Computed example of a mutant assay.
Amino acid sequence: MKKTVLSLIGVAAAASAVCFYNPTTSDAPAIQVPSQQDTKVDTYSSRDTFDYFLSGLGEADLETLKTHFNTYNAGQPNAYQLDNDLFERFIQYRMSLSNLTPDNQHPFNTESLQRLNDQVLQTQSAFFSAEEQQKLFGEENMQRQLALRQLELKDRMIHQDDYDAAWEQEINTLPPVMQQSYRNAAVLSQLQATNALDEQERYLKQQALVGAEAADRLVTLRKARADFETKLEQYFQQRDAILADNNLAREQTQQALHELRQASFSASQIRRVRALESIRESQSVVQSQ
C-alpha cells in the first residue's frame, strides 16, 4: 500500500515544508545555484521551469531564486517568456501547503488520503484558474486520483483476479502515455521485489520479466552502482582528511577537493557527487545542533 500512495505521501511531505527544449536557453552562472552549474534550464513546460529554479532552495534563499528566474525570463524572446505573476502564485501555493492538515495518525487510510487530496485541490483553486490548474498540475492530480482509486479497489475486492481486472479497466481509461507509464511501474515493482534474491535467482527472475538483454544490462548497472558506492566511500574518507587539515588555506583546501573529485570520478558523476556532498554537509549541520 505504501508504494501505491507514493504520490499522495509526497504531497503530505510538502505540507510540512516549502519545497521547493525550447530555443535560446540561458545557462549563465548568474541564474543558477552551484548544483545547477552543469545543467540547462528545464523548459519542457512552465511547471518544469518553475520547479527548476525553486529546486535551488537551500543553496540560495527564495528572493535570490526569484531573481534568477526573472533574469532568465527577461533574457528570453517575448514569445517564450513565462508569466511572472504565475510564478509568484506558484511559490505562494507551495508555501500554503504548509497549512494543510494531513492525518499523521492514519496516513495510509483511504479516507485520510482523500481528505488530503481535497485540501490540495482546494488550495490549487485558491491560486489558479481551472485552465492554469490543468496546465500546472493536470497529470499530478490525475495520478493522485488514480492512486486513491487503486486503494478503493484494494479495499473492495476480495479476490486478486477481480482486483486485477478492475485495475486494468482503470488503466485503460488513461491517455496512452500514462497507460504505458503505469504498466512500466508494475514491471519496475516486480523487478524491485527481486532484490532480496541471490544473484543467480535474481537474474533468472529478471530475465523472465524483461528478457535476457535487459537482464544483462541490469547486472552491468548493479556492478557500476556498487563500484560507484565504493569509490564514493573512499572519496569521502579522503575529503574528510583534507577538510581536517588545518595547515591548508581555504583556497588550497578547495583546490585539493577539486583535484580529488577530478581524479576520483568521471565528468558525468561529479555533479551527482557535489549534490551528495551538499546533503552530507546539511546532515552534519543538523546533527551538530
Rank of each mutant, 00 (worst) to 15 (best):
A249C: 13
V120G: 01
K135S: 09
L146H: 09
T49A: 05
Q180I: 00
V285F: 09
L188P: 01
P102Y: 01
V187M: 04
D85H: 08
R183T: 01
T123L: 12
E152Q: 15
V11F: 01
V187L: 04
T173Q: 07
L57Q: 06
E233K: 11
L57D: 06
L243E: 15
V18K: 00
S45F: 07
A196M: 12
Q269N: 03
I31H: 01
Q124K: 10
T4P: 07
V177E: 06
L116C: 03
K2D: 14
A249T: 15
H106C: 11
A17K: 12
N172M: 11
A165L: 14
L197A: 06
T253A: 13
E132I: 02
D245G: 12
A185G: 06
V273F: 00
L276W: 04
L218Y: 08
F265L: 07
S16L: 12
V210Q: 05
L148S: 01
A208Y: 14
E131T: 07
N70Q: 14
A215D: 09
A214E: 13
S112Q: 03
Q180V: 02
F90G: 00
N78H: 08
A263Y: 05
P175W: 01
E259A: 15
Y52L: 02
A130H: 13
A185Y: 02
V285H: 05
A186Y: 11
Y72S: 01
T49S: 06
N70S: 11
E199M: 04
L97I: 03
A166I: 13
S98F: 06
L116R: 00
R89K: 11
D240A: 15
M95L: 14
T64A: 14
N246H: 12
L204K: 06
A212R: 10
Y80A: 05
Q145C: 01
K40A: 11
K231T: 02
L62F: 01
K135V: 02
A126C: 08
S112W: 04
F137G: 01
G211T: 10
Q114A: 14
S181I: 00
S181K: 11
A147C: 03
L260H: 07
T194E: 02
S264A: 11
